[in-house]
Amino acid sequence: MIMHTRLLTPGDVDAFRNLRLSGIEESPGVAWASYAEESAQTLEQTRQRLVATPYQMVFGVFNGEHLVAISGFKRESMCQISHRGNIWGLYVAPEARGQGVADKLIEGLLREVRGIPGLVQVTLVVSSDNEAARALYAKYGFIKTGVDHRSVCIDGHYHDEDRMVLLLDAD
């Protein structure tokens, strides 16, 4: 099968919800929400996250018709910070790892957000101990700007997160 990347729509709600919950269950650090919090979201709340606007969008990579990777983007709406946006929740299903799927996802997401007028930087946070993810982001020009110590507490254990930024107008 040929993999393709596209914006998700409200019609993708079941596939998105299933993959997101699987990701949180497998790797709780992939999201700030716990499995219980995410699964408590109504289908309608989840569907609204998939309505693409200039301020929010969710991307997916499909292997044929099967959703195998997801990531979201949220742009700030307040005037003084609307020049920046944030990537969140990148997750690749285990069966799709090692096939360049995360690259396809980041490439598609960045291609889309580079077209947003006035957007000059994209930020993200990544677990400080996730070397593969940090290397992936660095490959696309993201640079580390700091560390949020004890940023996430999972099952009583604290985890640090690295803050990274891509300056779109520095290309």
Rank of each mutant, 00 (worst) to 15 (best):
M3I: 00
T9I: 07
D14H: 15
D14K: 14
R17W: 04
N18S: 14
N18E: 09
E25F: 06
S27P: 04
S27D: 02
G29T: 12
V30C: 11
S34M: 12
S34K: 11
E38T: 12
S39D: 09
T42R: 05
E44G: 09
Q48T: 15
L50A: 06
V51C: 09
A52C: 13
F59S: 06
V68K: 07
V68N: 02
V68P: 03
A69S: 11
A69P: 01
G72R: 12
R75P: 12
E76P: 09
C79T: 13
Q80A: 11
S82K: 15
H83A: 09
H83R: 10
P94E: 02
P94C: 08
Q99M: 11
Q99V: 09
A102H: 00
L105K: 08
L105R: 07
E107Y: 02
L109D: 02
R114I: 04
G118S: 03
V120G: 00
S128V: 04
E131Q: 05
A138G: 05
K139N: 06
I143H: 00
T145S: 02
T145V: 12
I154Y: 02
D155F: 06
H157I: 14
Y158G: 02
D160T: 05
E161L: 08
R163V: 07
R163M: 11
M164A: 05
V165C: 02
V165N: 03
D171E: 12
